[in-house]
């Protein structure tokens, strides 16, 4: 890198590069990210190819951990990945479907001077942690919780039913969070779409639904894609929500990883699973990046 910089400076055809301080200011962040983000990931990648047995490294290069991901315990780990993908897909789709109308109404139906306030209010719970949000849903869903009280009170059900501790509860907790995230990204995209596009479409005879379908929706896809990507990444990697709300019947990928660390201290297996999870995220990134580029054309 230093060599490249030196030659391009010697060549002298480039625009004058920022000198001194301005050049140096970038390096602390780059070095920090390299040392505490890239290096640890590289370490994990290396560890993932070692095999440990009872705390002792027995093999320095093997694909055993990756094989175990598929084979171990009748594919319980593979199933965790499948579960994670299913939950994440459902959460992403549901969150988009719920958030889009919220963002749309905020951007186009609410008077401009109330929009900001309403948006800030709407996403206020976004700023609390997964732990507290998930605990709050536990309160709502518990056997003595507000929903069971309401349903028994109305006579819809005779006895309180357990609503926590299953996939539905995990999805609910996730959707709650990601609806807020997507509302933010979609709203900020919608308000950037020039009003004259919608005016022009209406002028040319489009009904409100046609304007939405042919103009607003396609133009807001970048906002949806950014939000969907963030949702995917954060959802598939979260340990807390499924741990608090999901119960013990099924395992999601982060829980599977945490198990390797907690019970058996199998850092190699934990690393391998982490790499697999990251691989899935990278594929999702490439997918959405291509989508975004297509939209720009």
């Amino acid at each position: 890198m230093a060599l490249v910089t030196a030659t391009s400076a010697a060549g002298g055809i480039r625009a004058p590069r920022p000198a001194g301080l301005k050049r140096l200011a970038l390096y602390p962040a780059l070095i920090f990210t390299a040392a505490f983000f890239v290096l640890p990931l590289a370490v994990m990648l290396c560890i993932s190819f070692t095999l440990r047995d009872k705390g002792v490294t027995v093999d320095w290069f093997t694909f055993a951990n990756y094989r175990a991901f598929v084979e171990r315990g009748d594919g319980v780990l593979l199933q965790a990945m499948v579960n994670s993908l299913e939950v994440t897909a459902v959460v992403t789709v549901l969150s988009i479907l719920i958030a889009y109308p919220i963002a749309y109404i905020l951007a186009y139906r609410v008077p401009a001077r109330w929009q900001r306030l309403l948006l800030v209010l709407m996403v206020l719970p976004f700023w609390t942690s997964y732990v507290i949000r998930s605990y709050s849903w536990l309160l709502v869903l518990s056997e003595n919780g507000i929903i069971n009280r309401l349903l028994t009170g109305l006579g819809v059900i005779a006895e309180p039913i357990g609503m926590g501790n299953n996939r539905g509860a995990t999805i609910l907790g996730f959707v709650h969070f990601f609806v807020m995230l997507l509302t933010l990204t979609i709203y900020s995209n919608l308000v950037q779409i020039k009003e004259s596009y919608r005016r022009a479409a209406a002028d040319l005879g489009a009904s409100p639904w046609q304007v939405l379908l042919h103009v607003t929706l396609p133009l807001s896809l970048p906002g949806v894609a950014v939000g969907a990507f963030l949702t995917f990444v954060l959802c598939i990697g979260d340990y807390i929500t499924p741990q608090i709300l999901g119960g013990s019947k099924e395992l999601l990928m982060p829980q599977a990883i945490m198990r390797q660390v907690g019970r058996t201290a199998d850092f190699s297996m934990a690393s391998a699973l982490s790499m697999i999870l990251m691989g899935v995220v990278i594929i999702a990134f490439l997918f959405s990046a291509r989508r975004l580029r297509m939209d720009r054309l």
């Binding site: 004259s196 596009y197 022009a200 479409a201 040319l204 396609p218």
Partner: peptide, 25 residues
Amino acid sequence: ATVFQDYALFPHMSVRANVGFGLYM
């Protein structure tokens, strides 16, 4: 029909699709 000050051409459509939009509707 209006010609807008900023033209308001739909950026996600081709020239032909823009011109044909009103007929499509």
